[in-house]
Amino acid sequence: MIKLTQIKKSFGRNEVLKGIDLTVKKGEVVAILGPSGSGKTTLLRCINYLEKPSDGQITIDEFTVNYKRPDKKDIHTLRQKSAMVFQQYNLFKHKTALENVMEGLLIVKKLPKEKARQISVELLDKVGLGNKLDAYPSELSGGQQQRVGIARALALNPEVILFDEPTSALDPELVGEVLGVIRKIAKEGITMIIVTHEMSFAQDVANHVVFMDGGVIVEEGNPSQIFNNPKEERTKQFFKRITPDGVYSI
């Protein structure tokens, strides 16, 4: 279980997160939606401390970190409990697909090389890249790179995988293959928090949808409730502007 309490974050005088409370149950797939600048990505990055929150508290799997005075060891433990899939993939450029997935297993989990290799090959197979083990990121398409990114996150067997707009940088043609992989692992009961603009995907894969705007959670609930029956005016307005599949009505 993940519990966020009163997470706050300011960039200078601009308060981006104004006290976020969120609870994610084990095995739940949470989609965070909202307009640009609403703080979705910042919230996600605060969870594994890539962004330094100004205040608040997080509990992952009974391990609590107070963001007011975190010590280095706490942050390190926190990061080991989560993994992230980035919008720009961020694969290690100087390592092959296989080495990218193995890196965390070897260096962080300290597994023997053979074991790490075996796990990594299995995972790359699972994301459909069993034939690209020795390819460098520069030799892969965006969709393939992102699937390696997902395998790299899965390898660490984290409590939660954080997806930061995983398909925003992709060609429309390649979005499908990445969403397919995410859908597949969602079915395996891995806890996931996904920031996305793919509405129909969120509706179909998430068990819980969070709508954010202006640094606060405006509304949250199950997908059918949020998509079909939003209570708040701001949420209604947002969905009215965006019809399914990102087609914008004029």
């Binding site: 992230m84 290690f92 450029k93 965390g104 260096i107 962080v108």
Partner: peptide, 20 residues
């Protein structure tokens, strides 16, 4: 993004420095 990715898989700063 390279150091962020290293942090995200749980590396320490010195591991990220040396390896990535």
């Amino acid at each position: 993004g390279q150091i962020e990715a290293a942090y995200s898989i749980g590396m320490t700063t010195s591991q990220a420095m040396r390896r990535i």
